[in-house]
Simulated scan of single mutants.
Amino acid sequence: MKIKWLRLLLAVLVAGFLIPESHRIPVAGASVADWHPKSFWYYPWGRSGVHKGIDIFAREGVPVLAASSGMVVYTGVDSLGGNIVLILGAKWRFYYYAHLQRVDAQGYRFVHAGEPIGAVGSTGNAKGKPPHLHFAIRNLFPSPWLYNSRRPQAWNTMFYLDPNKFLTGKDNQ
């Protein structure tokens, strides 16, 4: 059992170097018009204080696709995100997919960019709201060049990439 976990850890560490990064919109058929470009780090935003991602609106049941290749490190349910998938991809970035109607991804499996991992829904704290995918990207290690002292929770900005910039190719991190 110990060797299995060591192999998994080694695979994840190596994957951060070797996985090519993709910039794919994670909702089938969606375009930039399906989210508000300034919703990232919007304040005030519910219990979390700021909105650490973007909401991509689509019909319920539309496939959610992996935005970048990586290892599925978690699938499950929580009170805020509802049905969620967390993928560790290139540059040790965590790709967070929340409010899914259903989860199709399996934990500890490699997924390729564009592979279906679930479906758009309104679970968690999105219950009763229009169906959408909450999509966020978090760095494993802090990036000082992302620090923005003018924003609420400024220390936290070092860990999050703006998904709008990432998906439109304007991210140079």
Rank of each mutant, 00 (worst) to 15 (best):
A58W: 03
A113Y: 10
D34V: 09
Y74F: 11
F159S: 02
Y43V: 00
A113D: 12
F135M: 10
R24Q: 15
G16V: 01
M71C: 07
P144N: 07
A154G: 14
G89N: 01
S22R: 11
I54G: 06
G76R: 08
N125I: 07
W145C: 13
K52F: 04
W45D: 03
K170E: 13
L167S: 12
Y74W: 12
V50T: 03
D162W: 13
V72M: 04
P163G: 14
S69E: 06
E60D: 09
A67G: 09
W145K: 15
E60L: 12
D171C: 15
S48N: 05
V103G: 03
L133H: 09
H99R: 07
H134D: 02
A113E: 04
G124F: 11
N125S: 02
E115S: 10
P44L: 04
V85C: 11
S143F: 09
I117N: 08
F135D: 06
Y96D: 10
I84P: 03
R138F: 08
I19D: 04
R59I: 07
V72K: 00
P63F: 10
V103W: 02
R24K: 13
F57P: 06
M158I: 09
I25K: 14
A136I: 10
V64I: 12
W155V: 07
N156H: 09
F159M: 00
G124E: 01
H23A: 05
S149N: 13
D162C: 11
A67T: 02
V111Y: 00
G124D: 04
P44C: 00
L88F: 02
V50F: 02
V85Q: 07
V103I: 05
G124T: 03
I117D: 08
A136Y: 07
R102A: 08
A119M: 11
A11D: 13
A11M: 03
R151F: 10
V120P: 13
L140Y: 01
W45C: 03
A33H: 15
D104M: 12
K127E: 07
A98L: 12
I3E: 13
Y147Q: 09
F166D: 10
K127Q: 01
S22I: 11
G121Q: 01
G128Y: 00
A58S: 13
P116Y: 00
L8F: 02
G70M: 04
I19C: 05
R150L: 14
R93Q: 14
K91H: 06
S69T: 00
V111H: 02
N139A: 04
A33V: 14
F17I: 00
S48A: 09
R7W: 06
